[in-house]
Nucleic acid binder design. Structure first.
Length: 259
DNA sequence: ATGGTAGCCCTGCTA
């Protein structure tokens, strides 16, 4: 199975690039974030013509997550459900579905804006709720893959300049602790498993100030998988070409091959 | 030095 994640920063603006990607990337499953579409406007028929079934959880102007699959898609659920108080209630940030025996979750973790804001506090709470939701529905023996824009760089190697990020979100100990806690539960950072020692492998570059061409990026688009799946991952790549050319997203797709 | 760009329900907010 080839599975990928891509924050498209508006699927309306990015649909030609997503169609192009589906044409060359040969993915079986694609998790999307920041579709910025209502469900009514989600181009499911376009994806169906390309061979992909899909589920979308959208709200319109902001957020929005989806899963595309050409290996089946069933049992879709939106958000955390009624048993949880979502700190970002009303935002479309999580959708899950089963694709070829894998429980696939597409997440758009809150950005957090700045450390001294309540948005940041709620980001940490959102990650707590994700942990509780995961624990309630699954064990680490299940085949679960949570892909998306986590808005957290797991390690200093995952940002272009740790010095430049001092005091910023995405790199704080508290945010990284939330990822570490999920890993203690039984999730594995699949990309890091393929590249245990590499640095400079980013998935996001700010549009501004020529950051992409100056290699000023961050690795925040992650695939956290249970061990049964992570052990099957034998290849992964950031599709940097998708960050170039006409009207790119500020994120590149990250692709994983599972044996 | 707090800039820069791109997205949206577009002159203000979000990332």
């Amino acid at each position: 199975m080839r599975i990928a994640t891509w924050n498209v920063n508006s699927l309306k603006a990015r649909l030609p690039r997503v169609e192009e990607f589906l044409g060359y990337a040969d993915v079986d499953v694609l998790c999307l974030q920041e579709t910025k579409l209502s469900n009514k406007n989600f181009p499911a028929l376009t994806f169906r013509e390309l061979g992909y079934d899909s589920v979308h959880h959208g709200q319109g102007q902001w957020n929005g997550v989806a899963i595309l699959s050409r290996v089946g898609i069933s049992d879709a659920t939106d958000g955390f459900g009624a048993d949880y108080t979502d700190p970002y209630e009303g935002d479309a940030r999580l959708v899950a579905a089963t694709c070829d025996g894998v429980r696939v979750v597409s997440v758009y973790v809150p950005n957090g804006r700045a450390v001294d804001t309540e948005h940041y506090t709620r980001k940490l709470e959102w990650l707590d709720v994700l942990h509780r939701w995961l624990d309630a529905h699954h064990s680490s023996a299940d085949a679960v893959a949570i892909l998306g824009d986590w808005n957290v760089a797991p390690d200093d190697r995952d940002v272009w300049s740790p010095k430049a990020f001092v005091g910023s979100t995405h790199v704080t100990e508290a945010e990284r602790d939330k990822l570490a806690t999920l890993e203690s539960w039984g999730l594995v950072d699949a990309f890091r498993r393929v590249y245990p020692d590499a640095d400079g492998l980013y998935s996001y570059w700010d549009y501004r100030a020529g950051d992409f061409h100056q290699h000023r990026g961050m690795r925040i688009d992650l695939a956290l998988m249970t061990p049964t799946l992570a052990d099957r991952v034998h290849w992964a790549v950031v599709d940097r070409n998708a960050r170039k050319g006409t009207l790119p997203s500020d994120h590149a797709p990250v692709i994983f091959d599972l044996a």
